[in-house]
Write a protein that binds this DNA or RNA. Structure first.
Lengths: 151, 151
DNA sequence: AATATTACTTGCATTATGCAAGTTATTTTG
DNA sequence: CAAAATAACTTGCATAATGCAAGTAATATT
């Protein structure tokens, strides 16, 4: 049984994260500084806990994320992008730019336009924060329908 | 009822093409010069015809592709990327680069590396071919498990 | 006129997703 | 230190999406 549908890199990539949720988890890890199950869950998109658990398991299986126990709280697991995972930054950035340009989103066009003009610098900074474990979010949440009573 | 899960551009984008097939159709249109239902179907990934029909309908509904009747053959419908669709070129390119770099694919690393070094030029050429309806494929098929007896 | 091609639909089995509730292992609180 | 809370999941079940095989309607070709 062959492993993949085809040898096309695009196709093989989509086998790892071609669904409605995986790239959002990666986004959360990459630009929002999220690390725990709880944070992903409260990310605002409304992912169900069983699906979240499933996606985390699969992303780990394909080497995009890893886990480490939280040294300060034994209940927590901290998820983190691998090198392979952080290399998805250009993909996320292009999705961000495309979505902002072509859809009615909550993101300020001017800010994203600026990022589009400085792709290299943005990617460098994203990667720097990842490498140095700088927890500051690069982008905020943009508001969601699950936000009503939330702080 | 709110239209989207959240205001995040990445999330909203994935609502249009966040699945296992949509981006492959877009890839076929963008870099392989495919235009017809039949060609997508024989693309090598093994998409079922009902799913293909569904995805074409949805991509059209969100304005990423359009159709035009084939002037030479009344049976054929020619699909074509819209401006919004061709703007996904950077996303496809980054997926191609990432997949080649991190997975065992059928694409030659050297060639893709070269493309990664000349992203702007590659994107410009892809867009040119789209604008001028130049039918030459930019990338070949990379072989698939459905290829056994196929020429 | 008969056969082939293209772009689909339809029916049905299998799989994935969504939702609510429950579980286990730690903290935290009174 | 016992009780309540929290974190990270699981489980069960209904609904929706997907995959597969077969069928159909409108051209085109032989």
């Amino acid at each position: 049984m062959p492993k993949h549908r085809s040898g096309c890199p695009v196709s093989i990539s989509l086998e790892s994260f071609g669904d409605r949720w995986s790239l959002l988890i990666i986004r959360d890890l990459m630009v929002r500084g999220y690390r725990t199950f709880k944070e992903f869950q409260q990310s605002g998109e409304g992912i169900a806990t069983n699906i979240l658990a499933d996606r985390l398991k699969k992303l780990q299986a394909v080497g995009i994320i890893t886990t480490e126990a939280d040294p300060a709280d034994g209940r927590k697991l901290n998820y983190r992008l691998t090198e392979k995972g952080i290399d998805l930054a250009p993909v996320i950035l292009e999705l961000l730019i495309w979505g902002t340009r072509h859809e009615d989103t909550g993101a300020p066009c001017a800010v994203i336009d600026e990022m589009a003009k400085n792709r290299e610098a943005v990617l460098k900074e994203v990667r720097r924060r990842w490498r140095e474990r700088d927890p500051r979010p690069f982008l905020p949440r943009f508001g969601s329908k699950n936000d009503v009573g939330r702080r």
